[in-house]
């Protein structure tokens, strides 16, 4: 474990990503301390630029943008992380079952996976959301999870296919272990790096999709999230009147989450696939190579 931790700590990008995500989560958890009071309360005049009293300015409705930003992190992050988990769980389960069983089960599941994969997600999300009317966070979660599992399922299936005839799996089968035990206890632990990548990617996707849906007005406008903040700012033409703080705060929040998660994912990718790594050892090797090439050319 400590070697894994060391490997992680040596990756500066991962550490930065981890600090960003932890910091934002702490901010969300400590919202009552950091921004006491109701974020939906009118506290000042309309569209005031940032001052000492309202560090992020106010919205058109005279609400404190800082307070909304802090409180809005809660549902935005919670929905993003929960949906990401749901997508990963669904994708992993379907991919594993499809890959392990093969035959007709695989044919049906693989066909479904590929079919759902090629249907454009956002138009489908908009269709589902518009039939459901204004939807709460739970419905947004369900809609996103049900339409975005195929990426993970495809990756997991490929891995499961390559694992299912390894000795330890065959042995487990011979001992007479039930299928669910073989799949979820024998095979699953071998997929941990893949699941990690899938999870971070799914959280990123969930946050993108959630923001898009809420920005388009499918979220509950009374619920303060970063997405509905963007929606409200857009509706009060904040950009055109020059109230950049109104749009800037939630946009920055979402962009920073994206940055943190992307840095984490980049590192996971490199750990799982050493070929992609571009650490110091590789640079040294490349430099040596270049030197040797130069010497060869000089000798010629």
């Amino acid at each position: 474990m400590s070697s894994g931790l060391k490997l992680f700590l040596r990756q500066k990008k991962a550490v930065v990503g981890f600090i960003i995500i932890t910091g934002l989560c702490l901010m969300a958890l400590l919202a009552p301390v950091l921004a006491p009071g109701d974020p939906a309360q009118r506290v000042g005049r309309s569209h005031q630029p940032p001052t000492v009293e309202h560090v992020f300015g106010t919205t058109k409705m005279g609400r404190d943008v800082y307070s909304q930003f802090v409180w809005g992190a809660r549902p935005s992050l919670a929905v993003g992380f929960a949906t990401g988990l749901a997508i990963t769980a669904l994708g992993t389960a379907i991919g594993l079952i499809s890959g392990y069983f093969g035959g007709r089960t695989d044919a049906v599941l693989d066909l479904t996976t590929n079919a759902v994969l090629v249907i454009p997600n956002i138009p489908l999300l908009i269709l589902l959301a518009s039939f459901a009317g204004t939807v709460g966070p739970m419905a947004i979660m369900a809609i996103i999870a049900l339409t975005s599992w195929p990426w993970g399922a495809r990756m997991t299936r490929a891995q499961a296919l390559s694992l299912k005839n390894r000795e330890f799996v065959v042995a487990a089968r011979m001992v007479g272990e039930p299928w669910w035990r073989i799949v979820f206890v024998e095979i699953l632990p071998n997929l941990v790096p893949l699941i990690g990548i899938n999870l971070v990617g799914s959280i990123i996707y969930a946050i993108v999709a959630q923001t898009t849906l809420e920005y388009l007005g499918f979220g509950d406008p009374l619920n303060v999230t970063w997405g509905t903040m963007l929606y409200n700012a857009q509706n009060s033409s904040a950009i055109i009147v020059g109230a950049w703080w109104d749009i800037g705060a939630p946009a920055l929040g979402i962009a920073i989450v994206g940055l943190g998660l992307a840095l984490l994912n980049f590192t996971f990718d490199e750990i799982a696939n050493p070929q992609l790594r571009s650490g110091p050892a590789l640079s040294r090797w490349l430099r040596l190579n270049r030197l040797r090439a130069r010497e060869l050319r000089a000798a010629r």
Binding site: V208, T212, I239, A251, I254
Partner: peptide
């Protein structure tokens, strides 16, 4: 790393930043 970050930022944000 910059590319990976670009994938993670929702188009809404980029659109609003460009517009502004």
């Amino acid at each position: 790393p910059f590319s990976v970050v670009m994938i993670a930022v929702p188009p809404v944000i980029i659109a609003l930043a460009t517009l502004f």
